[in-house]
Amino acid sequence: MTEPAYVTDTRTAYDTVADAYAEAARDALATSPWDRAMLGTFAELLGETGPVADLGCGPGQVTGHLASLGLDVFGVDLSPGMVSVARAAYPELRFEVGSMTALELEDGSLAGALAWYSLIHTPPERLPALVAELARVLAPGGRLLTAFQVGDERRHISQGYGHEVSFDAYRLQPDFVVDLFAAAGLTLEARLVREPREPEKVPQAYLLGRKPAQRPR
């Protein structure tokens, strides 16, 4: 099956900027208390319930942070360049090349999934299938945490981290993503929208959903 152009463009862009992106993102969590708070809550709720996947893990800094909080976490990214950088930076953790649209994971195999600014390169009309795929790999009672920029527009990115690139990013409305969760069978547990902090231009949203636990027969 032919790969959609947006997938190819996204992979190519992140392969191009992998090293520069990793350097720029290295201290991002240290300066973002909101990010640390949401990731910390996610980790505390999950505890030692099972494996967690950081989907769209990039250079692995968030994967490493979750591991430091005690989670059994591994990373998956579309970009081989990003995975190579992540493996070099965190050799004790597992990182795999893979697509969020077709995860090589069994049904119900994860206690948690993180989509940290990684839904944003998928056209909105394709997101229902993507979120359904994330819900598929969650065990009953498993949780999905996502973060994204708030808005309605598509942005074409031609310059990034000192390189010429060509790919799209989408800002999303929280209500739209909440509806995606519901359609995939996830119950919303928490929703936070915060105002932008420099150099951000728009509000940032965090949504935490949970797959209902199986009821005793």
Rank of each mutant, 00 (worst) to 15 (best):
L208M: 02
A169N: 06
P174R: 05
L105D: 13
V83G: 11
R136D: 00
Y6D: 10
G141V: 08
G81Q: 02
T101C: 07
V85K: 08
A88V: 11
T16A: 09
A111I: 05
F176C: 05
V193G: 05
Y170P: 03
G58Q: 01
R217E: 14
P80K: 05
T31Y: 12
P199D: 12
E104R: 12
V150C: 10
Y90A: 08
P123M: 01
G81N: 08
F181H: 02
V76H: 03
Y161T: 10
R217L: 10
V97M: 08
V202G: 04
C57G: 09
T10P: 12
C57H: 01
P59M: 08
F176G: 12
S68M: 11
F167K: 04
R217Y: 13
P174N: 12
A169F: 10
T146M: 08
Q61N: 15
L192Y: 13
Q149P: 08
A37V: 12
I120M: 06
Q149N: 11
G75P: 15
A86I: 04
F181L: 02
D54L: 06
D175A: 14
L145M: 08
A183L: 05
D9S: 09
R154T: 01
V165P: 15
A53T: 05
Y206I: 05
G50C: 09
T16Q: 10
E96I: 12
H156W: 10
A20D: 15
G40D: 13
P212H: 04
A184H: 04
A22Y: 01
V137T: 06
G58E: 07
E153P: 02
Y90K: 05
L172G: 04
G112A: 05
A25T: 12
T16G: 06
G64W: 09
V165C: 11
L207I: 00
E189G: 01
L66Q: 10
Q159N: 13
R197G: 09
T12H: 11
R154K: 00
H65I: 11
K201H: 08
F167Y: 15
Y206T: 03
P216I: 09
P123L: 03
K201S: 13
A53M: 08
S158Y: 14
A43Y: 06
R154L: 02
P124I: 02
F95T: 02
P199L: 05
A115W: 02
V177R: 00
Q173T: 15
A213T: 13
G162R: 04
Y161E: 13
G58I: 00
S166N: 14
S68V: 06
F148T: 02
E23L: 13
R215G: 11
E48Y: 03
P216F: 11
L180V: 00
T146G: 08
A13W: 14
Y161H: 15
D107C: 08
G185E: 03
A113E: 01
P91R: 04
V177W: 00
P59K: 07
A205F: 00
E195A: 03
D77Q: 07
T63Y: 07
R210M: 00
L39S: 10
R26C: 12
A205P: 05
P80R: 06
M100P: 12
A30I: 12
S99C: 14
L134W: 00
Y21R: 04
L45Q: 15
A135N: 01
R191M: 09
G50R: 03
A183F: 03
V165Q: 07
G160Q: 13
D9E: 15
A139T: 14
A132C: 09
D19A: 10
V85I: 11
P128L: 05
V165R: 11
